[in-house]
Design a protein around this nucleic acid. Sequence first.
DNA 1: CTGATAATGAAAATCATTTTCATTCTAGTG
DNA 2: CACTAGAATGAAAATGATTTTCATTATCAG
Lengths: 157, 157
Amino acid sequence: MRQGYGRGQGRGHRWGRQLESSGIRPTLARELVFSVMESSEGHLSVEEVLQEVRKSEEGIGLTTVYRSLELLHSNGLVKKLDFGDGRAVFELSDTLSGKGPHQHLICRSCGQVQDLTGSPVDKEDFAGSMKSFIREKYRFTTENMEIKVYGLCSECG
Amino acid sequence: MRQGYGRGQGRGHRWGRQLESSGIRPTLARELVFSVMESSEGHLSVEEVLQEVRKSEEGIGLTTVYRSLELLHSNGLVKKLDFGDGRAVFELSDTLSGKGPHQHLICRSCGQVQDLTGSPVDKEDFAGSMKSFIREKYRFTTENMEIKVYGLCSECG
DNA sequence: CTGATAATGAAAATCATTTTCATTCTAGTG
DNA sequence: CACTAGAATGAAAATGATTTTCATTATCAG
């Protein structure tokens, strides 16, 4: 990186609280990536994150964005999703976004992705009720559940 | 193909019933691919299908297996799944397998994939109850639902 | 049988992601 | 404050699944 990635923040004085408390060494690249994720409403592809990050620092490389996202993901700060088009997209963790647990409805016509929350079982906590159902019926311990519903949104239907 | 792919079956006398009635022109390659899918219990990767197919006909190419699976998939004879390891796997359609609608439980430890049927809502028809819930709440028309549950199976848990 | 059309296979092209490797930073330590 | 082992970075090369290209071969309606 041309200008050095520490850029005087010492031990996270300027940024880095979230990263440090997650046990991630705060660097400029990581901060920028996390900041982009934090300020985006929904999900972003790696390429999109790169674009955003480069608005602040041209020199950041694609590889580093991949690595940073992977790191944020393995530390639970961002979710990694796959909407079936052959590339990963990332979004802020449910906790950090304040959205709470949700799944996705993906329109095959316009491509729009909207959040799905609640369920016919428990209006609030779908994952919870599925988990206990699965535990009881299969003795399988659910760690992560991913539901993708493909179809037509209200606009396209 | 060295020996010609019709190999004397005329209009599906030997095989090809299923394919013909689905509007797919029956060829040796397609029949072999479909036959492999039919006789396999669960899901197979493209490479695995190729292996099996080549036990009957060495000359079959990988490209053709890709194309055949895609064709069978777009005609509803096989399902195309993604267990998150970067490659597609295919399995016989729920109708043809007689399994009925099901989702998957994927163990992150041993990699085993087991079928998930039923739900806390409707013991028999999970997808159905989700569909109506989604239609009512979001006015979204569900065409295909994919649920992947990652965790630990009873052996590994 | 025969020609128009479709299917096939090998090799090349794609494309997202990962790896390699030389360089640059960072966080202590003295 | 200088120094160094270890971590992070970026560019380029490698990977690996899937797709495309294109010349060849097979199919089937007439």
